[in-house]
Simulated assay, not measured.
Amino acid sequence: MRSHARTALADVQQHAEAVFASMGVALPDFLFNAWCTIPDHLLQLSVPAFEYPRSDAPAGFRLIGAIPPGPAGDFPLPHWWADLTAGRRVVVVTQGTVANEDLGQLVVPTIRALEGSDAVVVAATARPDGPDLVRAALGDRVPENVRLAGFVPFEHLLPLADVLVTNAGYGGVQSALRHGVPLVVAGETEDKPEVAARVTWSGTGVDLRTARPEEAALRAAVDRVTSEESFRERAEAVRNEIAQHDPFAAVAEIVERGRPTTRG
């Protein structure tokens, strides 16, 4: 991965070195390493239970808790909201707000995989035309147990969920863990494989290791995560650790202190 990144970003590295040189200093490291090693403080929005221990972490590195929730605001509940508290499993599936151009990667296969099951499947498409796109992909035959949504605030939805099926976007995964919700993850682009690997390492879910999982694999993963208590227990353990952190207070402490971390 490091070798590939250095090759793919060779032009960016050259540009960054030129920018640093124009200011009379040298870029001391590969760009992706430098943003971790140059700053006096590096604050990561996560907790130790979800991050590999690192003996080589920079001196100013701190895990300060999960991404804080945004303001809940007024959200008109859809007519099917009561279905989420009727005693059936609640499976939320999303491709997040970036990699959701093709909902046939994960949202549609999950719907098909769980059609006719005992679960209520909420497809949170995160785009206003998402429900229409899903209907079209399904041939206007939406299964009885599926509820389609454009934007649904996770602060309202995740407390009712038994599992989140996601392409492993960092924000969505952290939001799920902040609510103690276990995961089924399936992603291949950007940072998603790294996030998915941490889901496996932390015991909080199952990684399908592909952006286009088969329906049978999705069904088996959802059944496993919702039936084996260990996944919920690990997700709740991470939730409890997150609850001990206040990211805003951590940032404020460093800003108000106004001095760099002492380096050896």
Rank of each mutant, 00 (worst) to 15 (best):
D140C: 06
V146T: 10
V152Q: 07
V91W: 08
L138T: 05
D102C: 05
R127N: 14
H79N: 15
W81V: 09
E101N: 15
G116V: 03
T85F: 12
E144Y: 07
F154Q: 05
P78V: 03
A113N: 06
A149M: 08
H79I: 15
R135P: 09
L158W: 00
G116H: 09
D162W: 08
E101A: 15
V91T: 00
V122Q: 05
E144H: 11
A126V: 11
P143L: 00
G104H: 04
R89Y: 10
R141T: 15
S117P: 01
A124C: 13
V121G: 10
G150H: 02
D74M: 12
R135E: 06
R88A: 13
A82R: 15
L114R: 00
A137W: 07
F75Y: 14
T94N: 08
V142R: 02
L158A: 04
G130H: 00
L103H: 01
F154H: 12
V142A: 01
A99M: 14
V107D: 02
E115A: 15
I111D: 02
T97W: 10
V107P: 05
W80Y: 05
A149C: 05
T85R: 14
W80S: 02
V98Q: 14
V120K: 03
R147L: 04
V108I: 14
L106G: 10
H79F: 14
G96E: 03
A123N: 06
V134S: 07
N145H: 07
V163H: 05
N100C: 01
F151V: 05
F151C: 04
D83A: 12
L106D: 06
V120F: 07
L157W: 00
L106E: 03
E115L: 05
P159W: 01
A99T: 15
T94D: 07
S117A: 09
D140S: 14
